[in-house]
């Protein structure tokens, strides 16, 4: 099973790279058919990625969500999933073109991690942990998409007079609302993640919140996105400012995910 996972994981990376190449061709040559091919390849990549995760789950006899490798590959999976959903829902493949490099960066980070399957310590055997991490993947995926959308928004501003951008990328007001939607999805799931995490921590560590750096940084991220929402609502921080905020918010997400493990070790040090 784990060997199958290895092979599938490699194929997945290759497919994502291929999808990125086709997305870029789409932008360079401005031919819709390339975008369709790219999306199809990404979809096949996502399916194989899912199978790879299932293989790992079966091989390891548990949910594949408990170490840095497993979480990184799941994070890439979540971003790929959410970006495809948004791409399909709002029908603009340029999103795929900008999401693909981020997905590849994250799955590349996964490839650098140890893929060894280790036995879990008893505290990690919990269905709450499964829910906790699964919701985190969707939250991170959604914030990833809002980051990509923020980026596209800023590019859209630079490309005011490009016919391609006008015809293939939603207008700025719409991009802004889509970005807002992805932040909403992310914040809802981040809240879910924090609450299920607290329930698990209470059972496993005897304390639902212990200000461990990972917890603290997820709270910082949560607060940053809450500020984003309020600034939008009351201060009219839409468009450009919101796009910049989405980019900054995602930096917090990445810091929570990778930075904390690297710079601020705590009880979350396994993932």
């Amino acid at each position: 099973m784990l060997q199958a996972e290895n092979v599938l994981f490699t194929i997945t990376i290759l497919l994502y790279v291929a999808a990125m190449v086709f997305y870029f061709l789409f932008i360079a040559v401005k031919k819709e058919s390339f975008a369709k091919i790219a999306t199809l390849i990404q979809l096949v990549g996502l399916v194989l990625h899912t199978v790879a995760l299932i293989c790992r789950g079966i091989g390891a006899g548990r949910l594949p969500l408990t170490n840095q490798y497993e979480f990184a590959t799941s994070f890439a999976w979540g971003l790929s999933l959410v970006s495809l959903i948004f791409l399909w829902r709002f029908k603009f493949p340029v999103l795929g073109a900008f999401a693909a490099p981020v997905i590849i960066l994250i799955i590349g980070y996964a490839a650098l991690q140890s893929r060894e399957v280790r036995e879990l310590m008893p505290s990690l055997r919990s269905s709450w942990l499964g829910i906790h991490v699964s919701t985190a993947i969707i939250a991170y995926g959604a914030f990833g998409v809002s980051f990509v959308l923020g980026f596209i928004f800023l590019m859209r501003e630079k490309m005011q007079n490009s016919a391609f951008w006008d015809s293939h990328v939603p207008a700025r007001e719409k991009l802004d609302v889509i970005g807002y939607r992805s932040v909403c999805l992310g914040l809802l799931f981040l809240s879910f993640t924090m609450i299920t995490g607290a329930i698990w921590a209470e059972q496993a560590w005897g304390s639902y919140w212990s200000w461990d750096p990972k917890e603290t940084w997820s709270l910082v991220t949560w607060l940053v996105y809450a500020i984003y929402l309020h600034m939008r609502l009351r201060r009219g921080w839409k468009g450009r400012a919101a796009a910049i905020f989405a980019v900054v918010g995602f930096i917090c997400v990445i810091f929570t995910y990778i930075g904390v493990n690297t710079f601020l070790p705590g009880i979350h040090s396994y993932a």
Partner: peptide
């Protein structure tokens, strides 16, 4: 609400500080 936003910002900064020190 302005004050509320400021409060959220201060809380975020305090948390960040508490994790770095």
């Amino acid at each position: 609400m302005k004050f509320g936003i400021l409060l959220l910002l201060v809380l975020a900064l305090a948390c960040a500080l508490g994790s770095f020190i």
